[in-house]
Amino acid sequence: MIITDFTPPAGMELVYQRPESLVDVQTHYCPGCTHGVAHRLLAEAIDELDLRERSILVAPVGCSVFAYRYFEVDSCVAAHGRAPAMATGIKRVQPENIVITYQGDGDLASIGIAEIIHAAARGENITTIFINNAIYGMTGGQMAPTTLPGQKTTSSPCGRDVESTGFPLRVCEMLAQLDGAAYIVRRSLHDVKNIRKAKKAIVTALKAQVNGLGFGMVELLSSCPTNWGMSPQQALSWIETNMIPYYSLGEYKVIDAVNALD
């Protein structure tokens, strides 16, 4: 597919363009939101591995419910939290397809925690992109299962009180315990260096699925300037200063077969 009609002048090379797997439309995401970055990384990874015509995207309920509008791949929208179950149904009947769930923290870590744990435990050969921005975005900024202790939200106006609300879930650490998980990694989207590392992790996760190695998940620490009440720049800094200390970046589970891919 032709991505752009732009032809670089003689002697110049075209080095950056919209990935083939992204649709050329304006998104509904707020200014400064990192969903756009995550979408682009996933689309680039799909393109690089030449998976666009094999991919099926399962969108969640949450801000990324409209992800199906932005990816040039077959897609569907799951019920809240059920994307891993829906992806299981698709992958089991069509193992030749590359099945990807894209889920936020409320979707994956709260209402859908059972589905993600059991998909990982079964070693479902699917890939999950987990956007953790520590808040419910779509409904206007309520406390999420990943909201940090003391963090103010519209449903924890005095700051999250762990005495009454319990503690945030560290999903990578939980899923890494499961034998069915092949590749469990946490990355961040707060600066260029980390964005590059996130991209690499997504590529590895998709490669793992192509090779039938089991369940893969890439958690991406993301910003929500609108609901955090910050500027985009402040929000990126807040990821670094507040989220990363609680959600350590790193590879939580990489089975040997995944290591052997590179």
Partner: peptide, 26 residues
């Protein structure tokens, strides 16, 4: 053919949803 004993009926019906999306007799 495909048989999955799922973790709950909630998961079951969403697996059915997925397989039906793919056009399978489910």
């Amino acid at each position: 053919r495909v048989f999955v004993q799922a973790e709950s009926e909630v998961a079951v019906v969403n697996m059915v949803y997925g397989a039906a999306c793919a056009g399978a007799r489910v």
